[in-house]
Nucleic acid binder design. Structure first.
Lengths: 149, 149
DNA sequence: CACGATTTGATTGCACACAATCGAATCGCG
DNA sequence: CGCGATTCGATTGTGTGCAATCAAATCGTG
């Protein structure tokens, strides 16, 4: 007896954790978009800036490890952030393969305005902080298990 | 007093629910990818097939509402599914604006093989069914609140 | 020091994802 | 019936996301 559930139950869209994650991620992006547009950022660009505000000057590969994005995604994204004026891409002198990403003055200054974004969305979500924190931890745990699998 | 938290805490990447959702979604996609490649499906194509196995013959807009994707995404995706031979796009005779999406015999036949995918990933996730079900419901609730906001 | 292996960012090609716009078809109100 | 409003899918342009590949630079072992 292979499975206790029917194929229909197993394949029902509303039973899929993967679709719940996927559609929540799309809904999240749409909610952030108008707020981020005022900062001249896309959603993945915003995540990159969050990482840089925490730790300035990483190599592209280090930033990629933090965001789990590869160079094929990050290279054009970072070039656009550079074009907007928020970061600078500097090749290391001791190892010319490396490119380090540094915040510009405008990029550092943006942090204050960006702090209003999570505050604003916190209010919009209609959830308590503890609720959101708990869900965040659950998802991080799931993500880490998926990566290990 | 605007906020009880500092800007640093508020902007920390690991405190962001949005990043937890985003990175979990990417990890999920990567885990599914090799399984779906054997079925000649991408991850969003798989979600579209799940919707069609539940309810065959919807309009493009109906399918879009189910998946929360618009025609700019679905039109090329469905053309690729048609090229693979899993669906057929038929313009309605009574209203020629409408395009209905129908499973082909190959598309219907695929369902049996696809049923192995969630079974396989269920095992890989190292989670109990009840755990996954609870998280799925929580995310659906969050998603619906985000859409309403 | 030499040379194969590795690391690193860049590039290319394919597939979403969505905003904006379009044109055709239909609807609905007067 | 007529005509403006609406609905519907398609198209275009921008921006990810990733696999595969590349070239340059560095590392490591002998």
């Amino acid at each position: 007896m292979p499975s206790p559930r029917s194929a229909d139950e197993l394949l029902r869209l509303d039973n899929q954790l993967c679709f719940a994650v996927y559609s929540t991620s799309l809904a999240m992006t749409k909610l952030y978009q108008p707020h981020l547009a005022r900062l001249r950022l896309t959603y993945p660009q915003y995540l990159a800036m969050l990482a840089l505000w925490e730790s300035d000057g990483p190599m592209v590969s280090e930033l990629g490890a933090r965001l789990s994005l590869d160079s094929g995604t990050l290279t054009p994204l970072l070039k656009r952030l550079e074009a907007t004026g928020y970061v600078e891409r500097r090749r290391a002198i001791d190892d010319e393969r490396r490119v380090h990403i540094h915040l510009t003055a405008a990029g550092r200054k943006l942090k204050a305005r960006a702090a209003q974004v999570p505050e604003c969305l916190l209010a919009a979500s209609q959830c308590s902080i503890s609720e959101l924190t708990a869900l965040t931890r659950e998802l991080q745990a799931l993500r880490d298990r998926l990566r290990a699998a």
